[in-house]
Nucleic acid binder design. Sequence first.
DNA 1: AGGCCCGAGATCCAAACGGCATTGGACCGC
DNA 2: GCGGTCCAATGCCGTTTGGATCTCGGGCCT
Lengths: 94, 94
Amino acid sequence: MSLAQIRYFVTVAEEGHVGRAAARLRVAQPAVSRQIRSLEDELGARLFERTPRGMRLAAPGRVFLDRARRILADVDDAAEAVRASVNTPSCARC
Amino acid sequence: MSLAQIRYFVTVAEEGHVGRAAARLRVAQPAVSRQIRSLEDELGARLFERTPRGMRLAAPGRVFLDRARRILADVDDAAEAVRASVNTPSCARC
DNA sequence: AGGCCCGAGATCCAAACGGCATTGGACCGC
DNA sequence: GCGGTCCAATGCCGTTTGGATCTCGGGCCT
């Protein structure tokens, strides 16, 4: 499992379409498709139901979505906190 | 930033040595060394002080460590939650 | 039936990663 | 002072991973 996979998953869940998610992520559609599938394989659960009109969250996908968002938020927060700590008087030379 | 980098970072912080961390992670020492450096570059902060006896957490590293641990815990928890949800009566076929 | 979306698969190529061997620097005992 | 030791960092190479492009399969709608 990688952070990219988690980002792809959240975007697909929000868009409901692999293609549109790919556009938002500035990546080609097959890349997203593959990562989602690989994530499902690793978790051993089908996160989306494939319909001819797009992707709809399955039950395990709903379970995963909240936690995925939190992970991404934590990552951003961690990076932000470190960058902020560098510009702190107590950190003379980092 | 990748989950591997975060794992490497936490392990090095715990061990205080790149070499020992690498052994625990079952990878070679240069791999860990490079990932740590790349992480520092991306965050724009020196996370460790290099001493001739090993690595010691710098101030930004201490800031990052707590959050890094939380991210890893969240990832494990998310995977666990999904796997658990698959073996639930309400999830007939996933 | 024909066109149309949508996701999935195949193939190719570039970037990333890891392993090995080696270097460079600080400390130790002699 | 000098060789030995321990540490992280770097150069080089083989392998792997990920993305781009092109293409296919399958519902849907008119």
